[in-house]
Design a protein around this nucleic acid. Sequence first.
DNA 1: AGCACA
Length: 271
Amino acid sequence: MGDYGGGWRYAGAAAADSRRGGSTPTKRTRRDYEDGPPVRGAYGTPRAGERDMGYGARDRGYDDRGPRGGWRDADGLGGGGDLMQYGGGGMGGNDLGMGPGLGMPGGGGVSLGPLTLVGLPDDPPILGHGGRMVGLDGGMGGRPGGLGLNGVAAEADALRGNVDVLPPDASSTLFVDGLPQDCTRREAAHIFRPFIGFKEVRLVHKDAKRVDGGKVVLCFVEFADPRCAATALEALQGYKFDETDHDSYALRLTFARHPGPRGPAPPRSLR
DNA sequence: AGCACA
């Protein structure tokens, strides 16, 4: 756990739940995972609690959403600004484009065939880092006061000094390993897409140390900024890609040693 | 522990 160097810690006690591994999601099949990760809240939001979210996000969120953004890319892997909505704009973390019926809408390329991208009603994606977290706390421990207000709660947190302190080596790129060899770029992207600031994922196939013909899949995930990356890192640390497969262990995430194409500071080219 | 692409 000393992964991120000295004393870095998250505002919430996310790790606790995350590492305990006990409160894992209900039984799921591999197929389910491909629909999206059983994201627990970045701040340890218990899955059970997610049902209690006050705002009827579920109703409005999924139905009329249809083939919403996030699925437009030809390969369905793009991140793009669409997802920024999660924590930024409106209602909350439920804007996931993964509603029911997502499998068909003309979107581009999400034809996962029988995969049915049915959207995990009980899996509202979470995703944001402290600064943009939206009321996902719905009633669980952590912080006092009613959360659920965009920004407001977050700012209160900030004032309390409860802000995320990024480790010195934090970067916008995460290095992930522990992915199964047969993991596709699409699958990997599915895991990270729900997080604010997700941009893209790059898979790399390397030869394992043992020349038993094993290949290990490494993965580099690009985020808009180090904080976004840190949030995903923390939330997915130890994520069991496939619990039923004894060959695949928990994911292991760290900040990339040599940050991505753009690095942490992509200043002028964007202006 | 293991870190590629531009």
